[in-house]
Amino acid sequence: MADTILTDSVHIALGDYPITAPIKKNAAVETGGRFQFEDIVPITKAFKPMVRRGAYDISEMAIVTYVQARAYNKPIWLLPVALLARFQHRTIVCNSDYSRLRPKDLEGKTVGVRSYSQTTVMWARGILSAEYGVDLSKIDWVTFEDGHLAEYSAPSNARRAPEGRKVAEMLQAGEIDAGIMGNDLPKDDPRLITVIEDPKGDAGLGYRRNKVIPINHMVVASQDMIERRPDLVRQFFDMLVASKAAGNGTIEAGVDINPIGIDALRHSLETVIDHCLEQKLIDRRLSVDELFHDKTRELGT
Rank of each mutant, 00 (worst) to 15 (best):
A2L: 11
V10A: 09
I12C: 07
L14F: 04
D16I: 13
E30W: 03
E30V: 13
F37R: 00
K45F: 10
K48M: 04
R53F: 05
Y66E: 05
I76C: 06
W77C: 06
L78H: 04
L78Q: 14
L79M: 14
V81C: 11
A82H: 07
R90M: 08
D97E: 13
R102Q: 11
E107L: 05
R114C: 05
S115H: 02
Y116F: 15
Y116M: 12
R125G: 01
S129I: 11
S137H: 03
W141G: 04
A150E: 08
E151A: 08
S153T: 15
A154G: 06
A154T: 09
A161M: 08
P162K: 13
K166L: 13
A173T: 00
D177A: 09
M181V: 02
G182S: 11
G182M: 07
D184Y: 12
R191W: 00
T194K: 11
I196G: 00
G206K: 13
G206I: 05
D231F: 01
D238Q: 07
M239A: 15
A245T: 03
A246W: 00
T250P: 00
G254M: 02
D256T: 06
D263K: 12
L265P: 03
R266I: 02
H267I: 04
V272Q: 06
H275A: 03
H275G: 01
Q279M: 12
S287G: 15
D289F: 02
L299T: 09
G300N: 06
